[in-house]
């Protein structure tokens, strides 16, 4: 969690040049308090949720391991065509009704997700 925030800092932020006035106003302070409240209430509300929902999400066979990767590369050739070093492709699993769907998601290479995945892959390769 630390790292997420750590890396989410300056890089991917658009700073507008005309923004000269101080950002902090009463309304902003109030927004921040409300934001914190929203976060905490969301978590509070599920504190006592049963943990019986075991995390049992299978990874579809076609996305698994090295073979899957090759296959995936074929499937999403288009999406990957214009990929450069600045992004890394991930597959996002979602559900529509009971049907599983897969979607390609481009993630910046310097995001925590990409960096940690790459280092995991490298570690695996060395094994």
């Amino acid at each position: 969690y630390d790292e997420v925030i750590g890396n989410d800092g300056d890089e991917d932020v658009v700073v507008l040049k005309h923004k000269e006035e101080p950002i902090s106003t009463e309304d902003d302070d109030e927004f921040e308090r409300e934001f914190s409240k929203m976060m905490s209430e969301s978590i509070e509300s599920r504190k006592f949720e049963k943990k019986s929902l075991i995390l049992d999400v299978p990874i579809p066979m076609n996305l698994r391991g090295a073979q899957g990767k090759r296959k995936k590369r074929e499937i999403y050739a288009n999406a990957r065509a214009n990929e450069d070093d600045s992004h890394m492709s991930f597959t996002l699993l979602t559900k529509k009704g009971n049907r599983q769907q897969v979607k390609v998601m481009e993630v910046p290479s310097d995001s925590v997700l990409a960096v940690s995945t790459r280092s995991k892959q490298e570690a695996e390769r060395e094994e």
Partner: peptide, 24 residues
């Protein structure tokens, strides 16, 4: 406000999970 991504251990696959209880 509760959702976030978790990656698979060995694939470039991610899902959205709630922080409480699923990702806990």
């Amino acid at each position: 406000f509760l959702l976030g991504f978790i990656p698979a251990k060995s694939d470039t696959v991610v899902v959205l999970l709630c922080r409480q209880p699923c990702a806990a």
